[in-house]
Computed example of a mutant assay.
Amino acid sequence: MTSPEPVPFFDGHNDLVLRLLRGSVTPQGVVDGLPDGHIDLPRAKAGGFGGGFFAIFVPSPAGASVDFDEMQKPQYDLPLPPMLDPAEALTTTLDGFGVIEALEDAGALTICRTADEIDEVLKRGERMAAVMHIEGVEAIGPDLKELHDFHARGLRSLGPVWSRPTIFGEGVPFRYPSDPDIGGGLTEAGKALVKECNALKIMIDLSHLNGKGVEDVAAISDAPLVATHSNAWSVCPHARNLTDRQLEMIADSDGMVGINFASAFLRPDGKMDDDFGLDVMMRHLDHLIKFLGEDRVGIGSDFDGALIPKGIKDCAGLPNLRTAMRDNGVDDALMKKLAHGNWLRVLRLTWGQ
């Protein structure tokens, strides 16, 4: 008897679009295979990476990027980059939409607007399933016109901030050790953004928001609370991670969390160092399941945007994660939930499907 095919992973966050925006790779290269990075179609098929949220992100100006060397120290507090120029952010964001559409035209992925579409693409396994996501919405003005334009183009998820301020709120810095209770919450424009996202059925991502911002979203939103790529603060006390109080809020809303593969948000010492075992990820998994339950946890890799544990390396290494999960007591039913079932569940609730 042959063993069943492993259930595919659906991922809460990746930054492949940013690689293409920087011009280092092409859509056809993603189809044919790339020499480096974390995601391409051949490796996705080999590792069971079925797709996920493809983030459109506008990088900070040169000299204001995240300093990985600084994050290898026992303590660090990286300054937040300044607010972006809205016109430049809009240009780059529109280019990001074009990149995702070009990837679809090349045959690398299928843009999905419903949970059923994601499910169908995962079952076929020929392309990656892609949800359009914006990380840090500097391209959206206070009248929210661009939000409606982006939704018409396929946007179904957004994070109001990356780790820098916007007109909508404040993000958390890359600070260790620290809790996320840093700075103010949503502005009045941010509160209006949340309400309009609810009306349009656009998912709101809590990752990168500070503690007050998360509280504000929870008080306003009528949708499940979701952090697409965050970890447990009790295991790694980094400002980017979620406290037990925040996990309880997410559980109460019937939301979920995608485990971030970024080394600094996994390791208890907060270092951006990829030399550690996957047992550390299992500690986060166990803690998240303890507070959220088995129906509210998935993965949010941050592929192509972070330093990933050596035991995984790229999306072709996901079988190693499966093995670690199996060794940690994850059975077939729970594996299906953690791999993609929980994402489909929360998206159906959020998108009203």
Score class of each variant (00 low, 15 high):
residue 3 S to H: 03
residue 10 F to P: 13
residue 13 H to L: 14
residue 13 H to W: 02
residue 17 V to T: 15
residue 19 R to S: 12
residue 21 L to N: 10
residue 30 V to P: 10
residue 30 V to Y: 01
residue 40 D to P: 05
residue 42 P to S: 10
residue 45 K to V: 06
residue 47 G to Y: 05
residue 48 G to M: 02
residue 50 G to F: 02
residue 51 G to Y: 01
residue 52 G to L: 02
residue 53 F to C: 14
residue 55 A to H: 00
residue 55 A to I: 01
residue 56 I to T: 10
residue 57 F to Q: 08
residue 58 V to T: 15
residue 60 S to K: 02
residue 61 P to E: 06
residue 63 G to F: 03
residue 69 D to G: 08
residue 73 K to V: 02
residue 83 M to P: 02
residue 90 L to Q: 12
residue 90 L to V: 01
residue 91 T to Y: 04
residue 96 G to C: 08
residue 99 V to K: 11
residue 103 L to Y: 07
residue 104 E to N: 04
residue 104 E to C: 03
residue 106 A to V: 06
residue 108 A to K: 09
residue 116 D to N: 10
residue 116 D to F: 02
residue 117 E to W: 04
residue 122 L to N: 09
residue 122 L to W: 04
residue 122 L to G: 07
residue 126 E to K: 14
residue 126 E to G: 14
residue 129 A to S: 07
residue 131 V to Q: 06
residue 131 V to G: 06
residue 131 V to S: 08
residue 133 H to P: 04
residue 135 E to C: 11
residue 136 G to N: 11
residue 140 I to C: 12
residue 143 D to W: 00
residue 143 D to V: 00
residue 147 L to F: 09
residue 152 A to N: 06
residue 155 L to I: 06
residue 157 S to D: 09
residue 162 W to K: 02
residue 162 W to G: 09
residue 164 R to F: 06
residue 165 P to Q: 11
residue 167 I to P: 10
residue 170 E to I: 00
residue 172 V to A: 15
residue 173 P to I: 08
residue 173 P to D: 12
residue 176 Y to P: 02
residue 177 P to T: 07
residue 177 P to R: 08
residue 178 S to W: 01
residue 178 S to H: 01
residue 179 D to C: 10
residue 181 D to Y: 12
residue 182 I to E: 07
residue 193 L to K: 11
residue 193 L to C: 09
residue 195 K to A: 15
residue 196 E to Y: 04
residue 198 N to P: 05
residue 200 L to Q: 15
residue 201 K to F: 03
residue 201 K to Q: 14
residue 202 I to A: 14
residue 202 I to C: 14
residue 203 M to F: 00
residue 203 M to S: 15
residue 205 D to S: 07
residue 205 D to Q: 03
residue 205 D to P: 06
residue 206 L to I: 03
residue 212 K to S: 13
residue 213 G to N: 10
residue 216 D to V: 01
residue 221 S to Q: 10
residue 221 S to V: 04
residue 227 A to M: 05
residue 237 P to N: 09
residue 238 H to Y: 04
residue 247 L to Y: 07
residue 251 A to L: 10
residue 258 G to E: 10
residue 263 S to T: 10
residue 264 A to F: 13
residue 265 F to P: 00
residue 267 R to I: 02
residue 270 G to N: 11
residue 272 M to L: 13
residue 275 D to R: 13
residue 280 V to P: 09
residue 280 V to E: 14
residue 284 H to W: 12
residue 288 L to D: 12
residue 289 I to R: 14
residue 301 S to C: 00
residue 306 A to D: 09
residue 306 A to F: 01
residue 306 A to M: 08
residue 306 A to G: 10
residue 311 G to T: 04
residue 312 I to Q: 11
residue 317 G to V: 01
residue 318 L to R: 07
residue 323 T to Q: 15
residue 327 D to S: 12
residue 332 D to T: 06
residue 333 A to Y: 00
residue 342 N to G: 09
residue 343 W to M: 05
residue 345 R to F: 07
residue 348 R to C: 04
residue 348 R to V: 02
residue 352 G to K: 15
residue 353 Q to P: 03
